[in-house]
Design a protein around this nucleic acid. Structure first.
Lengths: 194, 194
DNA sequence: AAAAAAAGAATGAACGTTCATTTTTATTAT
DNA sequence: ATAATAAAAATGAACGTTCATTCTTTTTTT
């Protein structure tokens, strides 16, 4: 196999192993040796691809966040009407959280703990810009409540993380009909009531 | 000072130190030695009060959760109308998350990571029963959407955790007017639309 | 044959926990 | 009430283990 491809494969295996182990044990309870073992690589090899453990987890975060937002905004264009645009993005996000459960779990854990460096966190937030732009447009048009973006995010998007974590714990299962109910709740919480 | 009171003080100091250090560094990045130092106690003394580190954090979780729900339901009675009851509980919860920021942060971190034992987690959930009962009543009366409790919780309560974490990170400040907006969003997301 | 990549073993630091002692508190005898 | 003694609480140092990281050697690629 080509040298470059082999390198890419190893790096991907490391990222994948990091996600899986951190999901199940948390950052600090995940030794580099276990990540290496799961990626079928020597511990020393990790340091050819990443500076250290913190760098490994930071880069994993930014890459997964980037995949996530790429998926979320893939079918959205800036000229869509507010309501359609929001529904589209929201359902893509929900879709991602159902299909790419491991990735989404990892992001949730990163966002709720002091695990990630502040610069990497900021880097991750940047990717959400299209949604913030949509909201700004929606506020101007009087369709979306003139609230802080943090409040909008808290009610429109963040509940999906909670539902995903509950699902992962086996507490309940999030199926298609739940998703539709959740969407209605999300929209009702941010739309201007007429 | 009375012997008993001194013991209680030490135990409280340990719980307090655990909360503060875990909030800022996470569970595994908080050594017992630091907890001991902050509580002005020898590391060995911790083991007179708790079996081990896991036990310390489990017990801290259950105690804080208990304080939290005690506060949340303090002014609520079962015979209140649904809407009033919900608003009352919701605002008490919001109040707690603003005033007892450290405690609330700790709970949020526990609820979003594999930090706590499953039995202790279950123990913590039990305390929420009055809210679940209120929702059951609200569903029967056709006031609250007939959704899974997980969905109701995700939209009505959980967003407050996100807002608190954002506030703690200094991203924005949650003031009285935000709280009112948040309440409206919470209610709009779970009420039956007429 | 030289250079690059990868490996496994080695290292030093940090951690949770325990152990041997000391200090404090409670009980008893005078 | 006071001194002597027993019990309990608390301590700091030490232990064994684990971990992130590095070093030296081997394998693979050019």
């Amino acid at each position: 196999m080509a040298k470059l491809q082999k390198s890419i494969d190893k790096r991907n295996a490391l990222i994948k192993a990091t996600i899986e182990l951190v999901n199940n044990n948390g950052f600090h309870a995940t030794p580099m040796s276990k990540i290496a073992k799961m990626a079928k690589v020597s511990p020393a090899t990790i340091y050819l691809y990443f500076d250290n453990k913190q760098d490994l987890v930071n880069k994993t975060y930014v890459e997964v966040k980037s995949e996530y937002t790429k998926y979320a905004f893939a079918t959205y264009t800036k000229d869509m009407p507010i309501k359609e645009g929001f529904e589209l993005i929201w359902k893509r996000i929900a879709d991602f959280k159902l299909k790419e459960c491991e990735n989404a779990m990892f992001l949730a854990q990163c966002d709720n703990t002091p695990m990630i460096d502040e610069p990497s966190r900021q880097e991750g937030i940047k990717h959400l810009q299209p949604l913030l732009d949509l909201w700004a447009r929606g506020k101007k048009e009087g369709i979306i409540k003139p609230m802080s973006d943090y409040l909008l995010y808290a009610y429109a998007i963040n509940p999906l993380s909670f539902l995903m974590i509950s699902q992962k714990r086996g507490a309940f299962t999030l199926d298609k009909s739940h998703i539709e109910e959740a969407y209605q709740s999300a929209w009702n919480s941010i739309k201007v009531c007429q």
